[in-house]
Design a protein around this nucleic acid. Structure first.
Lengths: 225, 225
DNA sequence: GCAAAAGTGTTCCTAGTACACCCATGC
DNA sequence: GCATGGGTGTACTAGGAACACTTTTGC
């Protein structure tokens, strides 16, 4: 499987995946980070990630690393590759190319330290991350932009929420990702006009008027190309 | 430089770039292809591309391969990475990951056979390519979609044209990429409303009314609020 | 009755779309 | 004068943005 017969001038590189995994927590957009237990950048915070194994798909590797390093047991609701970082000097160990992935984890996903070569895993505010190892600050910035673009087009916001949710909750997701407030009336009008949601009872939160619950409507929307 | 000390389970892969290079020719969107001179897929048409060298940037490698395989002497007016293809079985020689790039070449760029491991280079209609080697048909399809998206947002259409051009020429670029006709009046209104163009004399084409020439305006448009 | 959270409509403006004729030139 | 290609305006529609008060509940 690893019998690679290439021309001598061809670079043979280490292939890695890094994952920018987002979730909502207390009305904030959070990013999942791990603390590196080995050099280089030992003790630094970094995006979860690691080397692709022989014969492994890129997306498979991203899922595996996410589970190994953070003990995230739930599957991401969304996972996509978004950019490949291949600058020759980005890793002191040699030429390592990283295929960066964007993941959306369900609401309430805990960050448990899992194992591998990391000593901790934790959620941070995505718009205000700590200093990061390698070029991970750059990767995170790209991931945020992609997330904002996806939000407008696809119904990616739903992936941050449980099966049923209220419109104020959905609006919080939008506001957290776009980092700006939205008008409540316009938001509701726009979302409901899309016809992707259906009613699913109501919920009492204690004080205040009960909220209408919604879920993703059964019928599929036409896929984006 | 190539002292890569990685864990044993880490895949060490061949790193390649492939380039989907587009240009306009006779009102059609064309894609630049090369004929492979070596196995695998000898004699098949394929996207230009090849292995990244040690210490080379991804974009550098894309430019180099484009020049080596097609003798395209002009620099692309636009070059961006758009997706990474890493399926384990995509190349029979072993695990080869390809970072695919989208390039826009200036109007009138000839396709000259350059050398390296290809026996020919030629332009084909981008929407009707011949059978392609590896997963290059897939890569081309992705590239076309990306090109269509970029067209709407950025002023990427200008990169297909010489410094000065007429609005009917610009409209041809849009129509060729989107593969559908556009209304002339609405097109002109929309384009001129963006304020990106300035007048640059006129041109007589022989018969017919002379056309107003435009060029990209010097000053940037004010950002939308 | 008051604090807390959910819910609701109208007006304005912009951008997109549909659609048909006149203008300047070469021959 | 006619063939060729370039240029122009208006009416309609849909979607986005601005904007303030009422309703339902717990306590």
């Amino acid at each position: 499987m690893n019998t690679l017969t290439l021309p001598p001038f061809a670079a043979r590189v280490g292939l890695a995946v890094d994952i920018a995994a987002f979730a909502m927590h207390r009305s904030k957009l959070m990013i999942l980070l791990v603390r590196r237990g080995i050099e280089p950048h030992q003790q630094s915070w970094a995006l979860p990630g690691g080397f692709v194994h022989d014969g492994e798909q890129l997306a498979e590797a991203a899922l595996r690393e996410l589970r190994e390093e953070t003990s995230v047991s739930l599957s991401p609701n969304h996972l996509e590759q978004f950019y490949t970082f291949g600058h020759p000097g980005r890793d002191p160990r040699g030429r390592i190319v990283s295929v960066a992935h964007l993941a959306v984890l369900p609401h309430g996903t805990p960050a448990v330290y899992g194992g591998g070569s990391v000593t901790a895993a934790a959620w941070f505010e995505a718009h205000e991350p700590p200093p990061l190892a390698f070029d991970h600050a750059d990767i995170l910035a790209h991931a945020l932009r992609r997330l904002q673009v996806r939000l407008e087009y696809a119904g990616l916001a739903l992936e941050f929420l449980p099966d049923t949710f209220t419109l104020p909750e959905l609006q919080e997701v939008y506001e957290a990702i776009l980092a700006r407030p939205l008008d409540k009336r316009n938001f509701r009008k726009r979302i409901l006009a899309q016809g992707l949601l259906e009613a699913a009872g109501e919920r009492r939160n204690g004080v205040g008027r009960p909220a209408q619950l919604y879920r993703r409507a059964k019928r599929l929307r036409s896929p984006r190309v």
